[in-house]
Design a protein around this nucleic acid. Structure first.
Lengths: 193, 193
DNA sequence: CCTCGAATCTGTTTCTCGTTAGATTCTAAC
DNA sequence: GTTAGAATCTAACGAGAAACAGATTCGAGG
């Protein structure tokens, strides 16, 4: 249930900072940002409550850091897998796999990012990253529509929301990524690989 | 942004109870169950904080009542629209329309029900209603698969989660129900009506 | 008009949580 | 070994919220 940890930290403090972030992501995923108490987070990170303030200026900042960590890690995975080569259908498949992998590997962070309460009141850096993530997806969808891989009627943005919504539901439910991907492709009647 | 109100209440107290429920649903949808304060709920319902306790034994009970109201209203709509007549494709279409209508009409209640934090720790009555709702959908999906309307590969339960996830994402984003339904049918390449 | 119960209000109590400040310990460089 | 800074702990404060207990008002029936 913990998230992933990229970027090797250097000092001892960096490791603690990561432990706090992981604990906060788990706590927020379970109880929401308001319901997650610093006491519980500190306990999970094996720390005293006050010590959190050496690493984060406030609870608000901690929550924001968790959000940014989640979306930026997702974006990183999308960049790695859905590179602009190959047919639209291939790139769409790669994008689906990347998103599902991100959900599986980042579990708690992903859950936090996807919580509906964060649709509004996003911190500044988070909004930009999220917009960028959605923009990539819109491109993938539009290309697939132009290609005939996906039905051309609906707006690309609409299709993107539907698709990501479907992937999120399966991902948060803990479904196996590969299995879910196959199901999606079958339903959309994409040509087999 | 308020929810719907079915079932005409009799006395004055019933109306107040409904006002509290609506206010609670809105507040919970915005700030999560932990972040929603009785003070804010009471203010929105034009009441003093303490007066809520005449209608609900505790904050926990109030939250549970909002949950049950949301899921039972959704189930009611599904019952009305997706009756067991017609072809599997027709019933599937009806189900999609019912779900989207429920999301649009119940907005705050639906948002509360769909919040990921409620996946666990559900109140007793809520679990049963939710199970029933999913069971209906599994039937619709299985019939559509047997019919060839939907791809037969993936498990019905998997398909159900994907489909409902997609509908929820569009519904909570405030998309027009009819428009969303058309997009879904086009993507799944369902035969036109 | 009076009465009684339902409904609401006011004030109080208790508890949790975020935040802060100062003391304390750990770690590495000199 | 000493020292300086990083990292953590301890203890408290203050705000806000849930919960509770009477006191008060409202509204229909006799």
């Amino acid at each position: 249930m913990t998230g992933a940890s990229t970027e090797v930290g250097r000092g001892k403090g960096d490791l603690t900072r990561r432990r706090i972030l992981d604990a906060a992501a788990a706590e927020i995923a379970r109880h929401g940002p308001a319901g997650a108490s610093l006491g519980a987070i500190a306990a999970a990170a094996e720390l005293q409550t006050g010590s959190i303030y050496f690493h984060f200026a406030s609870k608000q900042r901690l929550v924001e850091a968790v959000l940014e960590e989640g979306i930026s890690a997702s974006l990183r995975r999308l960049d790695e897998m859905a590179v602009p080569t190959g047919t639209p259908a291939q790139r769409l498949r790669a994008g689906v796999h990347a998103h599902l992998r991100a959900l599986a590997e980042l579990s708690d962070y992903a859950a936090v990012v996807l919580a509906p309460q964060f649709a509004a009141r996003q911190p500044p850096g988070f909004r930009a990253l999220r917009r960028e993530y959605l923009r990539r997806w819109t491109e993938l969808i539009a290309d697939a529509q132009a290609d005939g891989t996906l039905a051309a009627g609906p707006e690309p943005g609409e299709v993107r929301d539907l698709l990501i919504g479907a992937l999120n539901a399966a991902g948060l439910a803990g479904q196996d990524p590969a299995r879910t991907a196959d199901a999606v492709f079958a339903l959309l009647r994409l040509p087999p690989c």
